[in-house]
C-alpha cells in the first residue's frame, strides 16, 4: 500500500510496515491490557469468589452468592439511588446553565477573558480545595455565608450539610459551581464554529434575538448538546471526591454514592468479591450511557 509507493527498496519497506504498526501500538497496548482489560476481566471473575484484600489469591469459588448478596442489600440500592439522584440534580442545571450562559457570552467580544476565567477557574481547582472552602466556609452552620444570606430574608436556614433532606442538594450545588466551566467551554467552542453570517442573515430577515436563539442557535448546537449531556451523565455517575470529603456519605448515609460503597466494602472491609460485583453493576449503568458517547466518537472519526 502506501509503504510500497515510490520506495527505493520495496521489500524492506513492506517488511518494516508489517511489524511497524503493531510495534508502534505495543507500548500503549501494554498499559491498556495491564490496567484496563486485565482488571475488567478480573472484576468479572472475582465476583464469583470470596476473595479478601488481606490474604493473597482469589479465595474460594462461591458461585452467584455475591450477586445474590448485592442484589438483596438495601444499601446497594440506596447508594445507587443516591448516585442516580445526584446525576439528575447535576446534569439538568449543568447542561441548561452552560447552554444559556454560553449563548449569552457568545454575543460579546471584549471581556470574554473575564467571563471565561470566572466560570472555568473552579474547574481547574482540586476537589480537595473545593471541599475545604464549602465544608468549613460557605456552607458552615451559623457562620457560613450561605447561612447568613438566607437569614437576611428572615428565614431560618437549614443545616446545609447536616440535614439529610438538604445534604444532597448542597452537594449538587457545589458540583454545579465547580464543574459548570467545562460544559460552558464545550458550548463556547461549538458556538464559535457557527458562521457569523448565519446570525446576520436572520437578523436582516427581522428575527429578534430571542427567536434567533430558539430557532437557529439552539438547533445548531444539538450535536454538542448530545455530547455534553452524555459526558455529564457519565461524569456524575462516577461521583465520589466531593461527597467523600464534604459529608463522608452522611448524614446517616443520605449522600453515600455507589463508588463509596465500592471503596468501603473493597478497601476498608477488604471484601473484594462483593465489591467486584458492585463495581460490575456500576460499570453496566455507566456503560449504558457511554455507549452513546462511543457511537458519537465513532461517527466523528468516520467523518474526519
Amino acid at each position: 500500500m502506501a509503504s510500497t509507493l515510490g520506495t527505493a527498496s520495496p521489500q524492506r519497506a513492506s517488511r518494516t510496515s508489517r511489524w511497524a504498526g503493531p510495534g508502534l501500538i505495543a507500548p500503549f497496548a501494554i498499559f491498556y491490557v495491564i490496567f484496563l482489560v486485565g482488571p475488567l476481566i478480573y472484576t468479572f471473575i472475582a465476583g464469583f469468589f470470596n476473595g479478601s484484600l488481606l490474604k493473597t489469591g482469589m479465595g474460594d469459588w462461591v458461585g452467584f452468592t455475591n450477586y445474590g448478596d448485592v442484589l438483596a442489600d438495601s444499601e446497594f440500592w440506596r447508594t445507587l439511588g443516591h448516585t442516580l439522584w445526584f446525576t439528575v440534580l447535576t446534569t439538568i442545571p449543568l447542561v441548561l446553565m452552560a447552554l444559556v450562559l454560553a449563548i449569552l457570552a457568545d454575543r460579546f467580544v471584549r471581556g470574554r477573558w473575564f467571563i471565561r476565567f470566572a466560570f472555568f477557574a473552579p474547574y481547574v481547582i482540586p476537589s480537595a480545595a473545593i471541599s475545604l472552602i464549602f465544608l468549613w466556609g460557605i456552607l458552615a452552620d451559623q457562620t457560613g455565608p450561605a447561612f447568613e444570606v438566607v437569614q437576611w430574608f428572615g428565614i431560618t436556614p437549614p443545616s446545609w450539610l447536616g440535614d439529610p433532606n438538604w445534604a444532597m442538594y448542597s452537594i449538587a450545588g457545589v458540583t454545579v459551581w465547580w464543574t459548570l466551566g467545562f460544559n460552558f467551554v464545550l458550548y463556547i467552542a461549538a458556538l464559535q464554529e457557527i458562521p457569523r453570517d448565519v446570525h446576520e442573515a436572520s437578523a436582516i430577515d427581522g428575527a429578534g434575538p430571542w427567536q434567533r436563539i430558539r430557532h437557529i442557535v439552539v438547533p445548531m448546537l444539538a450535536r454538542t448538546t448530545v455530547l455534553v449531556v452524555v459526558l455529564q451523565i457519565v461524569a456524575s455517575l462516577k461521583v465520589f471526591d466531593q461527597i467523600y470529603m464534604i459529608t463522608g456519605g452522611g448524614p446517616d448515609g443520605s449522600t453515600r454514592p455507589t463508588l463509596q460503597l465500592i471503596v468501603d466494602t473493597g478497601f476498608t472491609d477488604g471484601r473484594t468479591g462483593y465489591a467486584s460485583v458492585v463495581s460490575l453493576f456500576l460499570f453496566l449503568v455507566i456503560l449504558a450511557f457511554s455507549l452513546v458517547w462511543f457511537a458519537v466518537a465513532r461517527r466523528n472519526q468516520k467523518e474526519s
Binding site: F35, L36, G38, T43, V234, G266, L280, S290, L291
Partner: peptide, 13 residues
C-alpha cells in the same frame, strides 16, 4: 476503552 471507567477497576489495579 473510552467506555471503561477507571474507578470501577480500582481493586484489581
Amino acid at each position: 476503552g473510552i467506555m471503561i471507567p477507571m474507578q470501577v477497576l480500582m481493586i484489581p489495579q
